[in-house]
Amino acid sequence: MNLLLLVISAVLVNNFVLARFLGICPFLGVSKKLSTAMGMTGAVIFVMTLAGIASWLIYHVVLAPLDLVYLQTITFILIIASMVQLVELALQKISPPLYRSLGIFLPLITTNCAVLGCAVMSVQNDYSLLETTVFALGAGVGFGLALVLFAGIREVLELAETPKAFRGTAIALVTAGVLSMAFMGFAGLVK
């Protein structure tokens, strides 16, 4: 039962973007077009889940026994970097248009604090392997939900007569603020 609560918490209540404010730069960078947003969501969910599992394994099989816990962050980044490189190579082959539209933001996932945050959090909260996978999947879906929702709004905002000073990222940040205010409605949903 608490797996369901874990997912609801990761997707809605403590949404990685709108509640924990992690992964903001791809959130702003890729949300201009809905199609790229969906592509990015797929990539992030894939990387997050794999990175979550890999970092749990590395932590519990290698670091903990040899009490090298302080190496946790550097190893997680190393794993995430290689995961991202893998995705980049695959994507360039499978769908070049999506690769081109994601452009600079695909390699950016390496330093994306949401992915690293998810790995570190699942270790800190001492989740089991199953819980880590579910939590990472939920975090990825939450990130995707916020990103797709936000891309929908931004595409409509493109048609608006926004005052010159607020065009582009400024109005996006304001809208993201109001969106996170709305997400606070879910506070307390998970006891």
Binding site: L157, A160, E161, T162, P163, I171, V174
Partner: peptide, 9 residues
């Protein structure tokens, strides 16, 4: 901030 009536989401 969105440009007036009609554009606010």
């Amino acid at each position: 901030i969105y440009g007036g009536l009609g554009y606010n989401p």
